[in-house]
């Protein structure tokens, strides 16, 4: 045993989410290592910044917080320093490639870890960073992962709910990212509360069936990790997907709208792939076809017709 106790949480990724997660874990008293290539002058106590994968892998609970297109590379580099005793969770919203692989699939492909999980739910980055009360969901088939995540993150202000349906949570997070574009679009196009509620409920229902076709449980999409997450987008002006949807409703082209959102919107490449997936599995993909119409610059009336046809 070394004199210093082994660090308990390693966070990979120095973006908004990585920093917020590192701060939240640090607040519960965990010893936190934050792997980041950036400078973080605002972090002066709590998380310790490290530049080396070997260093961050000394923690047994690893939290991946990188954009989905960077996940594979990050995991491969990290995997060189891991073994089967690591618990790996991620807060990445997105599904990879044509095969729509979840990030936990990537963890299994790129690292020796098997005890994997994901974070999701309605919690927002600023709530997490500032320690304001909120709730998140941890999905994993391994009770050990639930226990470790709860120990590392749960506090008076932050409730960690758990589900064994890891795949359901990952699909829910990714699909909600797509649906949030629709929420922004509908709000900007002048949908009233009744219509908005109807659209959201129909959309969540459709998304649940698609997730079920991928092997998830329908109820996960209908719960905190899906429905709950989507509700949080209603009043959110800052969410990139919402900004994108609003810009499109104002008649902006997709490129202009992306520029307005300023962050990578994972939903843009994902929506057509979900449409193709639904078609291949013979489930109703009407909601996502409507979203595809939105991305292609469809007028609100056309989109609405498409939605109600579903």
């Amino acid at each position: 045993m070394s004199a210093r106790p082994a660090p308990s949480v390693g966070v990979i990724g120095g973006g908004f989410w990585g920093v917020a997660l590192a701060l939240a874990a640090s607040r519960t008293g965990a010893e936190v290592l934050l792997f980041s290539r950036r400078e973080h002058p605002q972090i002066n106590d709590g998380p310790r910044i490290v530049r080396d994968h070997a260093e961050v892998a000394r923690a047994r609970l690893l939290v991946i917080a990188v954009p989905s297109n960077a996940a594979r590379t990050a995991l491969r580099a990290l995997g060189d320093h891991m073994d089967g005793s690591h618990l790996v969770i991620h807060g990445v919203r997105g599904l990879e490639g044509e095969a729509l692989k979840t990030v936990s699939d990537l963890v299994r492909e790129e690292t020796p870890a098997r005890r994997v999980g994901a974070l999701g739910g309605p919690i927002q980055e600023d709530e997490l960073r500032e320690g304001r009360p909120s709730a998140m969901v941890c999905g994993s088939r391994f009770p050990e992962v639930h226990a470790a995540v709860t120990a590392a993150f749960q506090s008076d202000g932050l409730r960690v709910y758990t589900t064994p349906d890891l795949q359901g949570l990952e699909w829910a997070s990714a699909l909600v990212g797509c649906l949030a574009v629709g929420v922004g679009f509908a709000e900007q196009a002048g949908a009233g509360p009744g219509l908005l509620a109807a659209l959201i409920s129909r959309a969540v229902d459709g998304a649940a069936r698609i997730a079920a076709a991928a092997g998830a449980e329908e109820r996960t999409m209908l719960g905190l990790g899906g429905y709950g997450d989507l509700l949080a987008s209603i009043r959110l002006e800052s969410r990139p997907e919402v900004i994108l949807g609003k810009a499109l409703a104002r008649g902006r082209t997709l490129d202009e709208a992306v520029a307005e959102a300023r962050l990578r919107v994972e939903a843009i490449p994902l929506i057509p792939r979900v449409v193709a997936f639904a078609r291949a599995r013979k489930v109703d993909g009407g909601v996502f076809e409507a979203l595809e119409t939105i991305l292609q610059g469809g007028a609100p009336r056309t989109v609405l017709d498409r939605m109600f046809a579903a």
């Binding site: 073994d83 089967g84 005793s85 492909e109 690292t111 020796p112 391994f142 009770p143 050990e144």
Partner: peptide, 24 residues
């Protein structure tokens, strides 16, 4: 990815001890 891995590491808990864990 072809990295050698110790199978014992999969049954170790967070303190590095091998444990029997039916749920796992």
């Amino acid at each position: 990815r072809g990295r050698e891995v110790d199978p014992a590491s999969y049954v170790k808990n967070q303190d590095g001890a091998a444990v029997v864990d039916a749920a796992r």
